[in-house]
Design a binder for these strands. Structure first.
Lengths: 214, 214
DNA sequence: TAGATTGTTAATCGATTAACAATC
DNA sequence: TAGATTGTTAATCGATTAACAATC
């Protein structure tokens, strides 16, 4: 069964909502309420959930416990994944120690940086290695997920090394588009500065729309 | 003229590519080459650029200098924008001092946090304020762009305060969906943990696809 | 039962891709 | 000129939305 990518993203988002609901796993929530919460239409919520098979109860909504369980099963979110960060600037360091990673199933087991000096200075419980060891350590430690937080110029090489070591999933935060180093490796590019620009552009365009000839 | 959102995002990405090309503003690049660089088809590149009016030269490609200028004009990217960060945890602090912000047109003029202790501890040249002053300071300092980096539970309130002060564009990094507090305010939600999950899910699904019955 | 809400189908919408005449 | 590449149109593709019978 093929699940469209926008649906995968929304299901992950719903999964987080279920986690946050926490204690109250028996709670029933309607597609309309979920839609309000996630900024989606109730139609799209029902459509998304329908990929999981029957999950709701007509007249009552979706039980958060079951919903969470079904999402986890369909998307493989209950597995734990050994994870590393390449590039330990301020963003990389923040991610290295991000306390929500563990509860979300990502075990941070290694950090890499090209600067030996930085490796010696950082105080962290995560094991640190020089950048040239990425593929060796990834293989040895059976790391499945790689986070790239190096400068733009180094991002593609970082992705290649991660893939060479056997990483299957990469999130790239460097301001350059990284493409899958080889088939079977999934890459997601997240450029925070670009997001700022997009939102600035959107607000610029919606302003211009209101004042077309002023 | 309405520009589709995916096109806005890709144009911003092209704009960054033009900046990075730097010195060589006279360089001509074909839609095929741009596509390779940005992970898009040459068709979509040409389509995107066509929203800017005539920009290329048949047989030769696009001049990076002109392309950059036209994107900036269409999306309002040459304006500088006064910007602030709400929430000064590790991510917020990293953004506060992110050195690429300035060159990209974002002037970081204020940081906010609910913890007075944190405000007193942080060493930065950006002016810091307690969180309850967000809307006042935003108004007084004519801040146009707000970045949210608070915990999930505080994100919507932060967005409300930013909008109350007059911010038009918000990027939310908290792990919760924030919707526009009022019409005319543009919000973009970037959940880094969700990105990790999405990529993990995609790689899980593509694995399952290869091994359907094993 | 009556009211609420799902699961699903069909219709709509919009974005992406392919193709090619026009142009340099 | 011949080769390369744009700008644009039309075709395709896929995602979102609307609607409603089935169900609790």
């Amino acid at each position: 069964m093929v699940i469209p990518e926008p649906t995968i993203a929304r299901l992950c988002s719903m999964y987080r909502f279920c986690e946050d609901a926490g204690v109250d796993a028996g709670r029933q929530v309607s597609s309309a309420a979920l839609g309000r919460e996630l900024g989606a239409t109730e139609s799209s919520i029902r459509k998304d959930i329908s990929f999981l098979g029957e999950t709701g109860r007509s007249g009552a909504g979706y039980g958060l416990g079951l919903l969470k369980k079904k999402i986890a099963a369909a998307l493989g979110l209950s597995r734990r994944r050994r994870t590393c960060v390449v590039g330990l600037g301020s963003l990389g360091t923040a991610l290295l120690e991000y306390e929500r990673l563990g509860p979300a199933g990502f075990d941070m087991v290694a950090g890499f940086d090209a600067s030996i000096n930085r490796l010696e200075t950082l105080r962290t419980s995560v094991k640190l290695y020089p950048a040239y060891e990425v593929s060796d350590v990834v293989r040895r430690e059976r790391i499945e997920v790689g986070i790239i937080a190096v400068p733009a110029a180094a991002a593609r090489e970082a992705a290649d090394s991660l893939a060479a070591g056997g990483v299957q999933a990469i999130v790239n935060f460097a301001p350059v588009v990284v493409r899958p180093p080889r088939p079977g490796v999934v890459v997601r590019n997240v450029d925070m500065l670009n997001e700022l620009r997009v939102v600035a552009a959107q607000s610029f365009l919606s302003d211009s729309a209101h004042t077309p000839l002023a």
